[in-house]
Nucleic acid binder design. Structure first.
Length: 249
DNA sequence: ATGTCACATCTAATGTGA
């Protein structure tokens, strides 16, 4: 099973490249963030893929997430939901048989850091509930936190800036621990320190690969055990984030 | 301190969120 996540930074502006990438990559599960569109504003050709069940959870001007599931994975349209800590259309959860899959866009936190921390706490609590219920989790998306210094290019490392704060990192670790989740990038590439997924959109930082790793695929241990590849596609698209693609089994 | 981009609004230039 191929799982992909991409913060597209505007699904309308990125519709053509998203469609082309989907046709080429053909993922089974696609998690999208920052669609910046209400469900009825999502370009029609992306709603009518035919091969996928589509779940759109979008606000007008910013934020918004989507989750697409290949129909072979679910005979009937799966149930979808939004956990109680959701706001600004930042998470959509779909029940895929045994597995609970989520597309999530954690608040950036520059404007409201306490709100970001509450969101991360909410995620950790929710992940723990899923674990207690015995439901394997697959969380994909833009968590807006670089896990460690190794996840930020040395030129971008800075103490005290949002995205690299100890309290954010502690909450990310709490999410992993309480949900018994594996950070698939780190599991598959423990030593690789240039697997960034976001680059500030100026001074050719992306081209020079001076970036941050803030987009993740997190999976419960049984799912993670099946992971065979992880890629951040730095050359794909014009969003400030790269698509991330993982293969399970 | 700076830089770019998508989308919004009093549809042209400016604000916002990131």
């Amino acid at each position: 099973m191929k799982v992909a996540t991409w913060n597209v930074n505007g699904i309308r502006a990125r519709a053509a490249q998203l469609r082309e990438w989907l046709e080429h990559e053909r993922p089974d599960v696609i998690c999208l963030q920052e669609i910046k569109a209400t469900p009825d504003q999502v370009p029609r050709d992306l709603c009518e893929l035919g091969e996928h069940w589509c779940f759109w959870h979008g606000a007008r001007a910013y934020s918004g997430v989507g989750l697409l599931v290949r129909r072979e994975l679910a005979e009937v349209r799966p149930e979808s939901a939004h956990p109680p800590f959701d706001h600004d259309c930042r998470i959509v959860v779909v029940e895929l048989g045994e597995v609970t899959a989520a597309s999530v866009y954690v608040p950036n936190g520059n404007r409201d850091l306490p709100g970001k921390l509450r969101f991360l706490e909410g995620m950790a609590t929710w992940a723990q509930e899923c674990r207690t219920a015995g439901r394997p989790l697959l969380i994909c998306g833009d968590l807006n936190v670089a896990r460690t210094d190794a996840d930020v290019h040395p030129k971008e490392r800075k103490a005290g800036i949002v995205g690299q704060l100890p309290e954010e990192r502690a909450l990310l670790e709490a999410l992993l621990a309480e949900g018994d989740l594996v950070d698939l990038c780190r599991a598959l590439h423990p030593e690789e320190d240039r697997l960034y997924t976001w680059w500030a959109p100026w001074r050719n930082l992306r081209q020079r690969n001076i970036g941050w790793r803030i987009d993740y695929v997190l999976a419960s241990a049984p799912l993670a055990a099946r992971a065979s590849s992880f890629a951040s596609q730095r050359e794909v698209g014009t969003s400030d984030h790269a698509p991330v693609v993982v293969v399970l089994g």
